[in-house]
C-alpha cells in the first residue's frame, strides 16, 4: 500500500487539476450563454431570407445564376469547421469522423477548406489537400467574418476550383448535445416555400434582379450560421467535458482520502500493537 505521504501528494495534485477544470467549465458556461444569444439573434434574418428566397424560387423558371449551376462533379470542396482548441470532449473528433465518412463514401476527388486549428492539423498530418485554412476565428464570430469566408467560397465555386461544396459543422442542440451535420452549400438548392402565401408581389427591379442580390446574402447567412452553431457547440461540449472531469476528480479525491485514512489508521494500529507487545515483553 502506498505510504500516507504519497497519497497526500496525489490528492494535492488532483485537487489542483480539479480547480483548473472547474474554472474552464465556468468560463465555457459564460461563453456558451453569449454564443447562444448570437445563435438566437441570427434567426429572424435567416428565417426571413429563406422565406423570401423560397417564394422566389418557385416563380422564377428559366432564371440563371452561377451559384445554381450544376456541373459534372470532378472535385468536391469540404468546408470543415472545428475548434482551435481541444479539451472539449468529442467535439472535434466527431466532426473529423464525419468528414472521414464523407471521403470514404465518395469516389470523387476531395479537398478541404479547414476552419479551426484542430481540423487543419488533422488533415495536414494525413497529407490531405487543404485549399484554404482559417484559424483563430475567436469566441464570437462576427458577420463580417462569415461574409469574408462566404466570399472566398463563392469565388472557389464560380472559378470552378470545386464543382460542389459541402459544409461539415456541428449543430447546436443543447449544452449537452451537439450533432455533426453535412450540408450542401453549392450548387445552391433553396427549398421552395411549401405554404407560400398566395400574394402577388411587386419586385424591384425585377424577380431576377432581387434573386441576384438575395443569393449571395443567402450563402453568407448559411456560412455565418454554421460558424455560430459550431462555436456554441464547442462551448457546450467543453462545458460538459469539463463538468464531468471535475466530477471525476472529486470521485478520485474521495477514494484517495479513504485510502489515506486507512493507511493512517493501519500505521496507528501497528504502533499500538508494537507498544503493547513491548510492554508485555517487559512483564
Amino acid at each position: 500500500m502506498a505510504s500516507a505521504r504519497d497519497i497526500r501528494r496525489r490528492i494535492r495534485s488532483i485537487k489542483s487539476t480539479q480547480q483548473i477544470t472547474k474554472a474552464m467549465k465556468m468560463v465555457s458556461a459564460a461563453k456558451l450563454r453569449k454564443a447562444q444569444t448570437s445563435v438566437i439573434a441570427a434567426r429572424p434574418y435567416a428565417y426571413k431570407i429563406n422565406e423570401v428566397l423560397g417564394r422566389l424560387v418557385g416563380s422564377t423558371e428559366g432564371y440563371f445564376h452561377p451559384f445554381l449551376e450544376v456541373r459534372e462533379v470532378k472535385k468536391i470542396g469540404l468546408v470543415v469547421i472545428t475548434g482551435d482548441r481541444g479539451l472539449c470532449g468529442g467535439f472535434n473528433a466527431n466532426i473529423i469522423r464525419m468528414a472521414e465518412h464523407f471521403i470514404a463514401d465518395t469516389e470523387k476527388e476531395v479537398a478541404f477548406v479547414s476552419i479551426g486549428k484542430k481540423g487543419r492539423d488533422y488533415f495536414r498530418r494525413r497529407g490531405r489537400e487543404i485549399v484554404e485554412e482559417y484559424i483563430s476565428i475567436g469566441d464570437n464570430p462576427t458577420f463580417i467574418q462569415g461574409k469574408e469566408l462566404a466570399k472566398r467560397l463563392m469565388a472557389l465555386y464560380t472559378k470552378g476550383v470545386f464543382d460542389e461544396i459541402y459544409l461539415i459543422y456541428s449543430e447546436f442542440r443543447s449544452a449537452m448535445s451537439q450533432k455533426p451535420v453535412t450540408m450542401k452549400l453549392f450548387p445552391v438548392e433553396p427549398a421552395a416555400e411549401e405554404n407560400a402565401k398566395d400574394v402577388e408581389y411587386i419586385y424591384e427591379p425585377s424577380k431576377s434582379g432581387v434573386m441576384d442580390h438575395l443569393l449571395p446574402s443567402y450563402v453568407e447567412t448559411i456560412v455565418y450560421r454554421a460558424l455560430l452553431e459550431s462555436k456554441a457547440s464547442e462551448h457546450g461540449a467543453r462545458m460538459t467535458a469539463m463538468s464531468s472531469a471535475t466530477d471525476n476528480a472529486g470521485e478520485i479525491i474521495a477514494k484517495l482520502t479513504l485510502n489515506l485514512n486507512r493507511a493512517r489508521q493501519a500505521a496507528i494500529t501497528t504502533e499500538i500493537s508494537e507498544i503493547v507487545g513491548g510492554a508485555a515483553a517487559l512483564q
Binding site: V52, L56, V199, E200, Y201, I202, Y203, E204, P205, G209, V210, D212, H213, L214
Partner: peptide, 19 residues
C-alpha cells in the same frame, strides 16, 4: 434607398420585395 432609386412607403402599400 432601393437599387432603382428612393422609394416611399405609406400605410396600405401593395406587397413588394426590393433590393
Amino acid at each position: 434607398p432601393a437599387v432603382t432609386g428612393y422609394l416611399g412607403i405609406w400605410p396600405n402599400h401593395a406587397p413588394l420585395v426590393t433590393a
